[in-house]
């Protein structure tokens, strides 16, 4: 003890680190793993499906998970007219529309970020179109492009544009004045400022926009394929589900729906993976 009289310096030895930091149990660590917890959710839902369907005992209206999986396997392995073809068709329309839509959204955003009238244009147009589902303009695209791939891509493009444009615009708007000043301080301006400072800074919003763009587009696509497939007898996953219903291949209908959901989950997984190595790592997303 050191005691100069008017104060005391406490002389407690520092603790052993192994005493203060204890690892948690492996079970608890597993529970903290998001992937594990989500798998658990899927497992529970799958079990509920399987046993629910067995209990209902109505294979035509509600096939069991196992029957559905068997139908899925058969559809994928079918030598002629396999499910892979339908998946490919859907992904083609979706990715074309997504790329085109994102391009258009980028131009709209650049216009909106740089001019006040551009901002007015974007906000007014998006508010006006917000209540309108993309499928609602399908009759127009039928008139302009006929019953064709172009019609479908037009709709997927359309469905991508507004969610992406709005989110990216909000993202740019949200970049702090300080960060803009910092970029200009380094000598960045115009496009180099956008590419090297604004886009990375707005990445969380951009990701949100791309996500909702993809899912909006995918939803419109599936609905559309059901309509257009009835006229042409061809198309993607939507048409697969519809045509299997017409053939009364009910487990295959469920397999098609399951397939749509799995693709949606895969997209989500890709986004999450990308986020983990970017914005999450940089502390821009918690």
């Amino acid at each position: 003890m050191n005691d100069p009289g008017h104060y005391i310096i406490e002389d407690v030895p520092p603790p052993d680190l192994t005493d203060t930091v204890k690892p948690i149990s492996p079970l608890l660590r597993l529970w903290h793993n998001a992937v594990f917890r989500r798998m658990l959710v899927i497992l529970v839902v799958a079990l509920a499906w399987e046993f629910g369907a067995r209990y209902a005992d109505s294979p035509l209206l509600f096939p069991t998970l196992l029957d559905t999986l068997a139908a899925l396997k058969d559809s994928l392995n079918a030598p002629y007219d396999s499910l892979w073809g339908y998946i490919g068709e859907s992904l083609k329309s979706l990715s074309l529309g997504f790329v085109l839509g994102t391009l258009v959204a980028s131009f709209l955003t650049i216009f909106a970020v740089n001019t006040r009238i551009g901002e007015d244009f974007l906000s007014t147009i998006t508010s006006a179109f917000a209540p309108l589902p993309a499928v609602a303009i399908f009759p127009l695209s039928l008139m302009w492009f006929g019953i064709s791939q172009e019609s479908v891509v037009f709709i997927t493009t359309w469905a991508t544009i507004f969610p992406v444009a709005v989110a990216v615009f909000q993202g740019f708007r949200g970049v702090s004045q300080t960060l803009r000043f910092v970029g200009r301080n380094f000598g960045l301006k115009g496009l180099s400022l956008t590419a090297r400072a604004l886009i990375p800074a707005a990445l969380p919003s951009i990701m949100t926009g791309l996500r909702s763009g993809v899912s909006n587009s995918f939803r419109a696509l599936v609905a559309l394929e059901m309509v257009i497939g009835a006229a042409t007898g061809a198309g993607g996953l939507g048409w697969f589900v519809m045509s299997q219903k017409q053939n009364l291949e009910i487990p295959a209908v469920w397999a098609g729906i399951l397939c749509i959901m799995v693709i949606g989950l895969l997209f989500e997984g890709l986004f999450i993976l990308f986020e983990r190595y970017t914005i999450r790592r940089w502390g821009m997303l918690h």
Binding site: S176, T178, L179, F181, V182, R184, N185, F186, G187, K189, A197, P200, A201, L203, T278, W282, G283, M284
Partner: peptide
């Protein structure tokens, strides 16, 4: 006439570093 790296600025805000 314009901002430039011959006049580096240190701002008050803690978000002046590029988070990425």
């Amino acid at each position: 006439t314009a901002p430039g790296p011959d006049r580096m600025v240190v701002w008050q805000d803690t978000d002046q570093l590029l988070p990425w």
